[in-house]
Each structure stands twice: as structure tokens, then as C-alpha cells.
């Protein structure tokens, strides 16, 4: 498999009044052709900042690249001039946002919004772009696309808007599609349809997907690999099987434990007690230390290095150090067969 994207030690900060918010602190991951990588983690862990950094959509200032590189086809995107980035956005990498109610321009027809990218990157005429737009709307499952193409976003339902958004993102056959919580704002039945659509289109076009979500159910359905983020860092990464069946990081255990289970009767959902770290003044050691039931003194002092569990799984946790006590994975984090396919 070929790596098409390599994020290496990426750090992104925001200069705010009085403090530097270190939103992403040394994140590394690869994306292979045609695969789906899920990035999971709770709110504020830096998922969107990571995703938008790849597209260079972060406002700079206040944002800034502190460190690291983003290699796409061997070229570092963090150093590309803005003009050259324009030829990557939309053409090589497409993006879908969380809320389809706000991610489409309310005063422009859907057709024009799809056509823009085609005209820019494919040198199409307005007419060609219009016809291609109809084709794309049909592809993403919008009925009577010839009519719908001339409508405005407010004439679409939420699910249809997200379909239109997918059509925009995939218009120029990008090699990578970044989907930042594409279904969080939609209701459950529509969620499933949108995910099905994305999976189907991926099979057709061979686009690699970076899928950002909090929902482990979606991960199990969609992804081949998972990166678990916490406090601006990736604390564990591995294949879906590894993360679900052999998780090594206490935060991953917590995430799995807070997933609703179908086969076990539970009084209430498990939650991870405590709140995430203040990224304006992040802890010196492991960011999870204040909430980790297994925290040791080493955890407060230094961020643990990654331990290679397998060729594909890496975990940053002091529990994996030789000197650490043996800890058993808690009952609640053990995943049965059923909920993964839920």
C-alpha cells in the first residue's frame, strides 16, 4: 500500500488573549491509498484542528504551525504557498463539515456551488459544470437532480444538504476526503444513509477517507484503522480490530466503556469522570493523567513514548513500561461481537 498522506509531529497553536492554546501537540499518522482512517476522541481533543490543518483552513493568525510537517505526495503542505494550496484543495483533498445546515452558502444555488470547483480545477465551461453537477447529484442519491440543481440550500433537507456537500467535496475526484463528523448533526436513519453513501462512493472512486467522529459505532462500520486523540495528542492507534479487541490505553478503555452495549443490561452509561486538560496550559506528562484510574507518578512527569504493540498498533502509556504494574482491561471495555455491527 502507498502512503498518500504523512502527518509528522504536527503541532498547531492559537494565539489568544493572554495565552497560547496548544490545540494539537505532536500528532503523527499516515493515510494509505483507498483506506479509511478514523480519528476519534472527545470534544476539544484537536480533531478538527488536525483536519483543517491538512487543508490549511486554519485562520493564521491566530493559528500557527509550531512544528511538524504534512506530506502529501512527498510535498510538505505546511510550507506550500497559498496559491499552490488552492490547487490541492478541492482537487486533491475534499472536505465535508459537521453541520450541513451551515456549510452551504445560503444565497447560491446548489448547482453553482458544485460547479465552482469543476470550473476551477477541471477547466469546465459553466454549461459542462452544470451537466456534471446534475450527474453528481444523481450519484449522491438526490431525486430529480435536474430540478434540484437550481435550488437553494434552504429548499433541501438536512440529509440532502449533506449529500450535496458530498457531491461538492467529491466533484473533482480528490484522492483524500476529510469528513469532520459528517453525520453528527443528522438523525439516526439519515446518518446510516449518508455513511452508506460514503462507503459506496469510496468503493467506486477509491478515495481515501479521514473520518472524524465521536461515535465508535461509526468507526466499526466505516474504518480500517483508528487514531484515538486526547488532549491534542494521539494516545493510541491501530487497526479497528486492535482498538476494539486489544486496546491498551486507559483512555481507549474509557471510550469503549462509554459505548452503549446491546448485549449487556446496564443501569446507566459509563462515563469517564473528570474533564479534559486546559490546552492553554497542558500538563507536562500524559494529558489523561488527571482522569486516569491507573495514574502513576511517572505519568505526571513525562509524556510516555509510543510502545509498538504490533506492526500496526502503537500506544503511548506508562502502563506498557516494564516497570509498571500489570493492569487488567476493565470489564466495561471488553467488546462483544454485537455492538460493533450495530
Amino acid at each position: 500500500m502507498n502512503k498518500i498522506l504523512e502527518v509528522k509531529d504536527l503541532s498547531v497553536s492559537f494565539d489568544t488573549y493572554g495565552a497560547e492554546v496548544k490545540a494539537v501537540r505532536g500528532v503523527s499518522f499516515d493515510l494509505e491509498e483507498k483506506e479509511t482512517l478514523a480519528i476519534v476522541g472527545e470534544s476539544g481533543s484537536g480533531k478538527s484542528v488536525t483536519a483543517q490543518s491538512i487543508m490549511r483552513l486554519i485562520q493564521m493568525p491566530p493559528g500557527k504551525f509550531v512544528n511538524g510537517s504534512i506530506l502529501f505526495n512527498g510535498e510538505d503542505l505546511t510550507e506550500k504557498p497559498e496559491k499552490q494550496m488552492e490547487n490541492i484543495r478541492g482537487k486533491e483533498i475534499g472536505m465535508i463539515f459537521q453541520d450541513p445546515m451551515t456549510s452551504l452558502n445560503p444565497t447560491m444555488t446548489i448547482g453553482k456551488q458544485i460547479a465552482e470547483g469543476l470550473i476551477k480545477h477541471r477547466n469546465m465551461s459553466k454549461k459542462e459544470a452544470h451537466l456534471k453537477g446534475i450527474e453528481l447529484l444523481k450519484l449522491v442519491g438526490i431525486p430529480t437532480p435536474e430540478v434540484r440543481i437550481n435550488q437553494y440550500p434552504h429548499e433541501y433537507s438536512g440529509g440532502m444538504r449533506q449529500r450535496a456537500m458530498i457531491a461538492i467535496a467529491l466533484a473533482c475526484n480528490p484522492k483524500i476526503l476529510i469528513a469532520d463528523e459528517p453525520t453528527t448533526a443528522l438523525d439516526v436513519t439519515i446518518q446510516a444513509q449518508i455513511l452508506d453513501l460514503m462507503r459506496g462512493l469510496q468503493e467506486e472512486t477509491g478515495t481515501a477517507i479521514i473520518l472524524i467522529t465521536h461515535d465508535l459505532g461509526i468507526v466499526a462500520n466505516m474504518a480500517s484503522r483508528v487514531a484515538v486523540m486526547y488532549g491534542g495528542k494521539i494516545v493510541e492507534t491501530g487497526t479497528v480490530d486492535e482498538i476494539f479487541y486489544h486496546p491498551k490505553h486507559p483512555y481507549t478503555w474509557g471510550l469503549l466503556g462509554s459505548m452503549p452495549k446491546l448485549d449487556i443490561e446496564e443501569e446507566e452509561l459509563q462515563v469517564i469522570p473528570g474533564s479534559p486538560p486546559d490546552l492553554a496550559d497542558p500538563p507536562k506528562g500524559c494529558p489523561f493523567v488527571t482522569r486516569c484510574p491507573y495514574a502513576m507518578s511517572a505519568c505526571t512527569k513525562q509524556m510516555p513514548a509510543y510502545t509498538n504493540i504490533s506492526d500496526t498498533q502503537k500506544t503511548a502509556c506508562w502502563l506498557l513500561d516494564d516497570r509498571a504494574p500489570e493492569v487488567q482491561i476493565p470489564e466495561s471495555a471488553i467488546v462483544g461481537g454485537s455492538e460493533i455491527n450495530a
Binding site: 488552492e86 484543495r89 447560491m108 456551488q113 470547483g117 461538492i168
Partner: peptide
């Protein structure tokens, strides 16, 4: 600062097109 401006940028449109075609027209309402 809206999402649809981010969408416009994510299509690879230039700064000027984003500001005027997508920004100004909505901002002038």
C-alpha cells in the same frame, strides 16, 4: 467565520473569490 466560507475555501477558490462571491453577497444583506 461561517462554515460555508470554509467550504468555499475547501473547494480551492482563491481568497478574492471567497471574500467577494461568498462573503460580500451574504454580508451585504
Amino acid at each position: 467565520s461561517t462554515d460555508y466560507i470554509k467550504t468555499a475555501k475547501s473547494k480551492g477558490l482563491g481568497q478574492r473569490v471567497v471574500t467577494y462571491r461568498h462573503g460580500l453577497r451574504n454580508a451585504i444583506l
